[in-house]
Design a binder for these strands. Sequence first.
DNA 1: AATGCGGGGGT
DNA 2: ACCCCAGCATT
Length: 375
Amino acid sequence: MSAAAAAQSQAVLSCPLLDWFARHARDLPWRRDRTPYRIWLAEVMLQQTQVDTVIPYYERFLARFPTIAELAAAELGDVLKVWEGLGYYARARNLHAAARQVVARSAGRLPGSYDELLVLPGVGRYTAGAVASIAFGQHVVAVDGNARRVLCRVFAVTGDVTRSSVQRELEELAVGLLPCGRAGEFNEALIELGATVCTPRAPRCGECPLAGECQAYVGGDPEPLPVRRPRRRVPHYDVAAAVTLRDGHVLVAQRKVEDMLGGLWEFPGGKREEGETLPECLAREMREELGVEVKVEEVLTVVKHAFTHFRITLHAFTCQLTSGEPSCLDCAAFRWVAPADLEGLPMSVADRKVAAALQAAQGQAPDLPLHGNPS
DNA sequence: AATGCGGGGGT
DNA sequence: ACCCCAGCATT
């Protein structure tokens, strides 16, 4: 293709897209005040997370940590607490670590180039491209899952999009469309189109500014694209957790930072092995994790919870310590806390439900689950 | 280049 | 019940 022809095909798609975006862009919190920190924070929160879920977290996070310097100065536990419920907690750990790097190395100024951004923990190809183009006006692409879907349909790309070779191919196609001086706007527009019009199911092609140029639409059936390898079935596990009470305090453990849900607090316990009863499992886990013997009493609550790659049924039992004092054999820390103080600790959604059940049980009948409470 | 990581929303 | 999502780090 000649340079002139390439320029024309670039404009044929980007012009109607930019025009559509100017008329249909949603009013989102991170589109109001486009400082680099706010764009960066939004992009990290939006990784694998939908807009409506992110908005309240974004507002709370900014209210609590208004600047990179204030984020860097915070304790990780406080950052995780604000992140609680949003998931993918490595994002919060990486964001915090990156803020500290930025403060230490460049006085709290986020670097403005794609290559420098890419080095920060938690910043990959997409986020580096988004921040560089949207916050700093750099001429780079930012291709996320929404943009990939649009590009697959427009260019009839039938390869498996979970393969990195196909992802690179899509990025190259996006590069070919990038208009000079309006890269950030273009990237946002492509993503917005994927999020609101070119949806995974039942795309609204009648409202799409690219329909006439879309190979999948012209071919008659855009919905099957993009193609991806079928996912594996997720296994299910039964997990036991101990609500151990003594003197009006409950025992909680902090997960090791390198583990899944690292740095969060939980009611200690673990996965039931083959041929094991739940109380046997819990007694074993308490020995292995904390070096104590417990008497497993009654079921406090049962919580079902889905992770990406497995599901659990979490059985929380009230327990009594029968021998030994806790020590951290397989956790980062442990603590005895008053039930009312559980709210201050960052926990996953499943453990938070157990904490709520404990408080509800005590609110109903303060003595009942507290066999060891001397009061 | 493939895989593990949370949680929620849409259909 | 699935499917998918403003992806990244690790292997």
